[in-house]
Amino acid sequence: MAPEVSGTSVPAIGEDLAACVAGLGRLPAFSGVPGDHLRRFVLAGTPVRLQPGQVLVRQDDPIPRGGGLAWLVVEGVLQATVRGGGDDRPVGAVRPGEVAGELGLFADGGRRSATLTAEGPALCLRFDAGLLEALPHNRAVLVLERHLMGSLARRIRKTNLAIQKAWREASAGDSPETPAPTGFFQRLAALFGGGR
């Protein structure tokens, strides 16, 4: 698996593998998955332990052609931020049982859309699309894929609603309660980061 993590991470050891299996088993989505499936699933990925404030991946980092990495959060919380107007703006938290960087799994090149930073101590399982292929009859993979379908659909709806809201607000003019930003593109930049 190609390294794609910014900064330094503590190398995976047996303890982390065991902690990943135990942590996943406690999550509601994975609670019905047989233990041997969970173990094979974790062994096919790479546990990554993060210190508070450690950056997992940075906005605009390149995604390799053929697909990149994603991280299943087992313990702790990751914060996603985008750059906009010189600041890092929080755009969402990734909690245990959720996947960060999932777009990279199915991308053929491109760049990361957000920076992911550990809020506190965190444990993630790093994987790529090869894990899905390597474990064809694994219940944990099935749970992961169903979860990814739902989370991608929610992100699509949320993004679409946010863009339409930005346009409506820009089109209606700024209210006294929300004096800035003024234009559609400035509002988009506030949502997605960027140079405006």
């Binding site: 199915f106 894929e145 991608l152 699509i156 993004t159 988009l188 997605f192 960027g194």
Partner: peptide, 22 residues
């Protein structure tokens, strides 16, 4: 996986379009 790939492409393409626009 077909549905996942399609959803990821939709979101990825929209993100690229927004970033290109900005």
């Amino acid at each position: 996986r077909v549905v996942l790939t399609s959803l990821a492409r939709q979101l990825g393409a929209a993100n690229r379009r927004v970033r290109g626009l900005l």
